[in-house]
């Protein structure tokens, strides 16, 4: 695939807050880039400086040193008016209005283009209608904001940002406070916009799952440094693990998921294949059983989910049958000789 044009990049950027008694640096030596048509997820722990970075990249805040380049032009050399037509920024600030219609809220995205009174022209109408269409809000255009669900309200913010008609869309935690289906639908909407509209979209999130599954590139902030790459690259080179792993949280490199670490209470052998084996293994791990080839108890998973079910072969050679994983785990929990302690 041919790589799109570079939209935004940073060069030895240092971010933070300048105070009268010296600067408080949040992060330095930031060298990242984003291209046309790319969906980028910015990931990092709370307080790692995600918002500060986004605010600095959008010109809402001055860098401490280094530069941000918008299409190879220094951000500071671009006039405020031109900037509002190239970068849109959606902060975590919620819409705190109730007496406003979806259409009017989205129309405010046309702010940089309208006259001194903010009159919406015919051309503006076309852009607003398209933004509503892309975000699936057309049928709600006349609805008051306070009659929307949280997910729909987030879509309004995205539509407003689209109406600003910029090449770069920056969003600070667009999926915060949303339930799981809404989180997925918002991120897949962002992905669709990056693909179909060739927008460059950068969003910060705490939601690793959707980021790993949907984003083209992750910007990972950890211990004062930022690394970028495809989600898979960051999994393989253990950057993701290093960023979030702790004595109580371990990263599973094959599934790309994190799990709470607890000391195992027993060990078993596991025989079987396919998806039934995988789900059985999951349940055993959750139940704090380690899977070892030297363990005394053997568990055989069925090949297909038929009524032969699961079998446990005890050290004494006895065979026990189970029809569900739930029963299996309950048996192991109550069998003292399985347990290490």
């Amino acid at each position: 695939m041919e790589k799109g044009r570079e939209i935004i990049s940073t060069e030895n950027l240092a971010i933070g807050y300048s105070k009268s008694h010296g600067n408080s640096m949040v992060m330095k030596e930031i060298n990242v880039s984003a291209f046309r048509g790319e969906l980028i997820a910015l990931i990092g722990k709370n307080g790692s400086g995600k918002s500060t970075l986004l605010r600095t990249m959008t010109g809402m805040q001055q860098p401490l040193s280094g530069s941000v380049f918008m299409k190879r032009k220094k951000l500071n050399d671009i006039s405020r008016t031109d900037l509002t037509k190239t970068i849109s920024f959606t902060s975590t600030e919620p819409i705190d209005l109730h007496n406003i219609k979806v259409y009017e809220a989205v129309a405010l995205g046309r702010f940089p283009y309208t006259n001194w009174l903010g009159t919406i022209s015919h051309d503006d109408h076309i852009v607003i209608d398209e933004s509503l269409n892309l975000t699936g809000l057309s049928h709600l255009a006349d609805r008051k904001i306070d009659r929307l669900s949280d997910g729909e309200r987030q879509r309004v913010l995205i539509a407003r940002s689209l109406a600003q008609d910029t090449e770069l869309l920056v969003m600070d935690e667009p999926t915060a406070f949303l339930d799981l289906p809404s989180r997925y639908s918002i991120v897949s909407l962002l992905r669709k916009l990056s693909r179909e509209k060739k927008k460059c979209i950068i969003y910060s999130t705490h939601d690793l799952d959707t980021a790993i599954n949907e984003a083209d590139k992750l910007w990972l902030m950890k211990s004062g440094k930022i690394s970028q790459g495809a989600p898979e690259d960051l999994v393989i080179n253990r950057s993701l693990a290093e960023a979030f792993e702790s004595p109580s949280l371990s990263f599973n490199i094959s599934s790309g998921t994190f799990r709470l670490v607890r000391s195992p209470k027993g060990s078993v052998r596991l025989e079987g294949s396919g998806y039934l084996r995988r789900w059985t293994e999951r349940a055993l791990v959750r139940g704090d059983f380690r899977i070892e080839t030297s363990a005394k108890y053997l568990i055989k998973t069925p090949d297909v989910a038929d009524d032969t079910g699961w079998q446990i072969i005890t050290p004494g050679g006895e065979i026990k049958h189970f029809t569900s994983i739930y029963d299996l785990i309950n048996y192991l929990d109550e069998e003292p000789s399985v347990n290490l302690k």
């Binding site: 509002t84 600030e93 600003q164």
Partner: peptide, 23 residues
């Protein structure tokens, strides 16, 4: 009257107003 347009953006929130270029 000169501030009618900024007023609408300010009602949405200060950060939004700044991001669309309101001084």
């Amino acid at each position: 009257v000169t501030q009618l347009k900024p007023l609408n953006a300010i009602l949405m929130g200060d950060t939004f107003a700044r991001s669309v270029g309101v001084n």
